[in-house]
Amino acid sequence: MGTRRTSLPGVGTRYDFTTHAGQHLSVVVHHDGRRFIGFYAADDPDTCQSSVPLEREEATALAHLIDPAPLDAVRTDGIDLVTEHIQIGSRSPYGGRLLGDTGARTRTGASIVAVLRRTSAHPSPGPDFRFAIGDTLVAVGTREGVDALAAIIAGG
């Protein structure tokens, strides 16, 4: 199974997902909350065979069917905040480095509020928390801030 995240300037973010069986699909999340799921042929991962557009409420309903307790967006005083999981992959420059090395909050305005490891959870990690490959960061911020943080963690 493999996933890839691509920023689409002026549009949003595309998440590509390949299953263990080799099936490829993408989810495009627009800045305004619209989403669509695209399905691709195994022999041509660049040609979308079909797509399903989803309004924000429809995407939330589908997410609840897949995972009954997903992380939802939080609306506060007219500002959209999102909570997202960001994995530290093998190509991340932050595997083995300290949270403070990312400069996450200063550079993006997004906060890393927890780190999930295979066998443990670390809420409210401080700047001296050392990341490991495979860690999942729980980030909170604006859509733009969380996307910027994900790009930093990925090495972009």
Rank of each mutant, 00 (worst) to 15 (best):
M1D: 07
G2N: 08
T3S: 10
R4T: 08
T6Y: 06
L8C: 10
L8D: 05
G10I: 11
G12L: 09
D16H: 03
D16F: 05
F17R: 02
F17H: 07
F17P: 03
T18V: 05
T18D: 01
H20E: 09
G22P: 03
Q23E: 15
Q23M: 08
L25M: 12
V27C: 12
V28D: 10
V29E: 03
V29F: 08
H31V: 11
D32K: 14
D32N: 15
I37R: 11
Y40F: 15
Y40V: 13
Y40H: 04
A41R: 15
A41I: 07
A42C: 11
D44H: 13
P45A: 15
D46G: 07
T47R: 14
C48N: 03
C48W: 02
Q49Y: 05
Q49W: 08
S51P: 02
L54P: 07
L54R: 12
R56A: 15
A59Q: 12
L62S: 11
L65D: 12
A69Y: 13
A69C: 08
L71K: 04
A73K: 09
A73H: 11
T76E: 14
D77E: 12
D77L: 09
I79N: 10
I79R: 15
L81N: 10
V82I: 15
T83F: 07
E84I: 05
I86R: 00
I88S: 01
G89Y: 03
S90D: 08
S92G: 01
P93D: 10
P93Y: 08
Y94N: 05
G95A: 15
G95Y: 05
R97L: 09
L99Q: 06
L99C: 07
D101N: 12
T102P: 04
G103W: 03
G103V: 01
R107M: 09
R107W: 08
R107E: 14
S111G: 07
A114C: 13
A114T: 10
T119I: 04
S120M: 12
A121T: 12
P123T: 03
S124N: 13
P125F: 02
P127A: 07
P127D: 06
F129W: 04
R130H: 06
R130E: 12
F131T: 00
A132W: 04
I133T: 14
G134F: 00
G134V: 02
D135Q: 10
T136Y: 06
T136A: 05
L137A: 09
V138A: 10
A139K: 01
A139G: 01
G141L: 03
E144F: 03
G145M: 04
V146P: 00
V146Y: 00
D147P: 00
A148R: 15
L149A: 01
A151K: 04
I152V: 14
I152A: 01
G155V: 10
